[in-house]
Design a protein around this nucleic acid. Structure first.
Lengths: 187, 187
DNA sequence: CCTACCTCACAGATTTTATGTGATGTAAAT
DNA sequence: ATTTACATCACATAAAATCTGTGAGGTAGG
């Protein structure tokens, strides 16, 4: 299980065995089944999660019960309610499993610890944060100035495997369109 | 929603409108969807929950991942991890939803408060606690000296509606048999 | 007025879950 | 040693749930 985490870190920075074992010792593991919730609204959020295997979604549900997908997370992705995680407030997102999943969990305290002790881990997470920031900017821009069809085509190009693993209803919620509209766009 | 709670209390003790409104003011509400959890292992347990609508299960999962059902809770039932609730320790049970559910939540502090202020509520909860104790004794005795078939028949007699709403796999886990055995017993 | 959506409803397809059954093995009771 | 009452594994089928596509009508923005 941990080999995936090592490969993930080493995409950005090489690690000695000793460094990696030390880093890994700051993670715990969690296995969830399909439909299980990882985080529910108003939960205290204590961990960030690296997806070793499986697929999850982070969503916000409005007062009318309508679900908006903020993020999917498959293997090699990270997921949590970041607002709640970094500010140690309660969650506003729900996170649950689309498939059975195996996760590695990192508390904020442990994250700060390994970052402070290992410069290259500080570097790793800064790079990931920058990438994430840029991805969110692109998503906002896409929502602002692309048509629904264009957004669909961009996502299909960028993450074709999502379309095999995620129901189109959820992809529609991620793209900000109804599932009927997505169906019509796909023809 | 609260009319169900009032009816529930009044099965044991009549209440004036004023008394009931006062009692109700000590509850909060919670709505959960199917598969959402109410309590997870190691959670601090702050509330007891009255089920207004829906269906939940309380279970223990052993180290091998095998799930044992401690309790189901449908409308008019109460559910929590009582050990954790009364001793203010962390949960050893998982509680989640078999159906979308609406709950009324009562903290231990509020429970103690309304019991100390209203003798008839003290009476109500004492009666419920006695009933619960006796029910658990019966269950233990049933596990000790009844065959699986007898336990199944007792449950079917006592809660026939469970068999419409709960998968037999879960009922089997409650009865302490495999789902195949339960299937064979049902013939 | 046109376009690009949303919503509602319906129908059918697909997937998932539940269930029943057979075969084999095991442990406890006799 | 034998019998009984289960568990487990595997398989097949049924039932339920979910997914998807489509039509019709409505709405808001351009």
């Amino acid at each position: 299980m941990s080999i995936e985490l090592r490969k993930h870190f080493e995409k950005i920075t090489p690690l000695t065995d000793q460094e990696f074992d030390y880093i890994l010792s700051h993670f715990t593991t969690k296995k969830l089944k399909k439909h299980q919730y990882l985080i529910q609204e108003e939960d205290t959020v204590t961990n960030d999660y690296f997806v070793v295997k499986g697929l999850l979604k982070a969503s916000h549900i409005d007062k009318e019960g309508k679900e908006y997908i903020m993020q999917f997370a498959m293997e090699d992705w990270w997921i949590t309610d970041y607002q709640a995680y970094f500010s140690q407030t309660t969650a506003t997102l729900h996170i649950n499993c689309i498939e059975d999943s195996e996760l590695l969990c990192l508390s904020l305290q442990n994250r700060d610890k390994i970052c402070s002790e290992l410069h290259k881990i500080e570097h790793f997470f800064r790079r990931k944060s920058n990438l994430g920031y840029v991805a969110l900017q692109r998503r906002i821009l896409s929502l602002l100035n692309s048509s629904a069809k264009e957004r669909y085509e961009q996502l299909l190009l960028q993450y074709p495997s999502l379309f095999q693993r995620v129901p189109k209803t959820l992809i529609a919620s991620y793209l900000g369109v109804s599932r009927e509209t997505l169906s019509r766009l796909s023809s």
